[in-house]
Amino acid sequence: MKRDMIKIGDIDLELHEAGEGPPLLLLHSGQGFSPDDPYVGMLAKHYRVIAPSHPGFGYSSLPEWMDAIDDIAHVYVALIDRLDLPSVHIVGCSIGGWIAAEIATKIMRRIDKLIVVGPEGVKTGRRDELDIPDIFAVSQEAMNRMRFHDPVKAHVDLSKLSQEQMRVIARNAETLSLLVWEPYMHNPKLRHRLHCLTMPTLFLRGASDGLVTADYLERYAQLVPGALIETIPEAGHLPHIERPEAFVAAVTSFFGRGA
């Protein structure tokens, strides 16, 4: 995968790119982007995959003014323009799906088709209940149980990681907190803007996702005209990691095979 640093406004953005075909903007989850994950190569067989590291994640810089998911959406609106893409598919996982939804409310006609995977971003439930469990107040073990169908696979031996890898993980976590701590996991404005999404939209979810429930996804999808819902069995919050084949099959079936 090709890796570049490009300047968008005052941000140094880390940008990965691979494959040929219809352009597909791939927006990563809160744990950051790993170009070596199998699903990435599989997508690149069909599409020109364009995968930035969000500001404050990976090696992208984080300007001081930035503190919300919607700020990142503005950066990617500028990126789509910079790359001169008349139209683009977007796939966003978890907070990447939230960013995708925010982008879609700004440049609805420029987005071909949209897939959001276990997305956060709206508050649909009661005031005295969290829609998404508090990820900041649970142990790593509990977090893995919520994120994976098979938590054993999630085990990362931290002692095997380099200091630099640990630094990136800690920084990703810090940026995530900056963006989603409060309002927790949503932008109060977003739900009132989703009515204008005109592109075909698919809400995708791992059947064992302990963070984004089926009910939440359904209430979220109802805010988007004509949105479809699909479930990937035996996968948790990150079906692209846990079930790459099934995930890529769902993407190609919705977007078309591309190149």
């Binding site: 900041f136 649970v138 800690a170 976590a173 810090e174 907190s177």
Partner: peptide, 17 residues
């Protein structure tokens, strides 16, 4: 208290942690 209560992300720099 558990570590996730004591040190939420961003409360301390990585070095301080």
């Amino acid at each position: 208290m558990p570590i996730e209560m004591l040190l939420p992300p961003g409360y301390s720099s990585v070095e301080s942690i």
